[in-house]
């Protein structure tokens, strides 16, 4: 079972590898990946450095080219593929059908993992991507329950990767247009969700308001913990009741499920967060390394260490964590 950690920079990559990641995933400094934030990601020079560093330490480097290519500058996406392959990346993480085809035809030996942005939630979709493009692994969307993950593990012969920890997308990834509805920019069209350029904070009489492109996302009393206005985690009104109609600000944490994920042969546990700092990546990686080593050593007697949970809770949105859709009662 692989521990796959995020890196938005060379220091984060080194932090992940020094603390026990088996593989690290990165993106390029442009629209070709779904964490297209200022100051983040690698260019072709640092990508080569990242590959060299990972390989020197016997680890793998995955490159996410997981947005959908745009007609007017399509070459930017095929260029990203060419650059990642030239840099000798071990794996490309891809969602766009045309890019999957491009890689399968031009670089038939290249290992491809189907990005979560491709929204493959069922065996028929997995069959399609496997037979059309020879993808080796599927990154499962965060909408599946543990029994559904188990069913897929039993009915398909493909490697499965699941999100283990980090920000929780509660919508099927790759099919969510909430952000462009409100701001004009979405993960699919711009590699961003609830982009910072559209965020405004306003304080009046001690009450802090967060707005996204003018829309009031939340209002915080002086004693309340504030959070970034990700629009699916806003507090809105339905029939007179003010609450979080979609989801509370919370992070996904599957530590409790680790023995089950191991037993079902899940190939890789993915930690979300290429936008996070090297210090965050180091702490998260250390906890998950210890947890995976513990489950590998004695899967039947695995217990979650309280210290791990404490560290993870501190690193979570609103200090809250959830099993998300993996647990049926979440739905």
């Amino acid at each position: 079972m692989e521990l796959l950690c995020p890196a938005g920079s060379i220091p984060a990559l080194k932090a992940a590898i020094e603390n026990g990641a088996d593989a690290v995933y990165v993106g390029l400094k442009d629209q070709t990946n779904a964490r297209h934030f200022a100051g983040l990601n690698l260019d072709s020079g640092t990508l080569a450095e990242a590959v060299t560093y990972a390989h020197q330490h016997g680890r793998k480097l995955h490159v996410a080219i997981n947005t959908f290519a745009q007609p007017q500058n399509y070459d930017q996406w095929t260029g990203a593929v060419d650059a990642a392959i030239k840099a000798k990346a071990d794996v490309l993480i891809v969602a766009d059908i045309s890019l999957l085809g491009y890689i399968a035809e031009r670089y038939p030996k290249q290992e491809i993992h189907l990005s979560v942005q491709a929204s493959a939630t069922n065996a028929a979709a997995i069959d399609f991507y496997q037979s059309q493009f020879g993808v080796k692994r599927i990154v499962l969307p965060r909408v599946l329950a543990m029994n559904q993950v188990r069913a897929l593990a039993h009915t398909t012969n493909i490697d499965l990767e699941v999100f283990a920890f980090g920000s929780l997308c509660i919508m099927v990834e790759g099919r969510c247009y909430l952000s462009s509805y409100m701001t004009g920019e979405s993960p699919n069209t711009a590699g961003v969700c609830s982009p910072a350029a559209h965020v405004r904070w306003e304080e009046e009489d001690g009450i802090l308001e967060s707005r996204l492109n003018g829309v009031l996302i939340d209002r915080f009393q002086p004693d309340e913990r504030t959070g970034y206005p990700t629009l699916c985690k806003g507090r809105f009104e339905v029939a007179g009741a003010v609450y979080h109609p979609l989801e509370e600000p919370t992070s996904l944490n599957t530590l409790d499920l680790l023995p089950q994920l191991y037993k079902e042969g899940i190939k890789s546990l993915k930690i979300e967060g290429r936008q996070r700092s090297p210090a965050y990546v180091a702490q998260i990686t250390r906890v998950w390394r210890a947890a995976i080593d513990s489950v590998l050593a004695a899967p039947d007697t695995f217990t979650v260490d309280a210290e791990w949970q404490r560290v993870l809770a501190n690193l979570s949105e609103g200090s809250q964590t959830t099993l998300g859709a993996y647990h049926r009662t979440w739905k």
Binding site: V143, L144, A145, I170, M171, V172, R175, C176, Y177, L178, Y181, C232, V238, A239, A241, P245, L246, E247, A325, R328, T329, W330, K331
Partner: peptide, 21 residues
């Protein structure tokens, strides 16, 4: 009204404080 997102969670049930099941 445009479909903008899909989830494992049922938001109508949630709005009535019910689980999807």
């Amino acid at each position: 009204h445009m479909p903008l997102a899909w989830s494992a969670r049922c938001f109508t049930a949630r709005s009535e404080q019910r689980h999807k099941d």
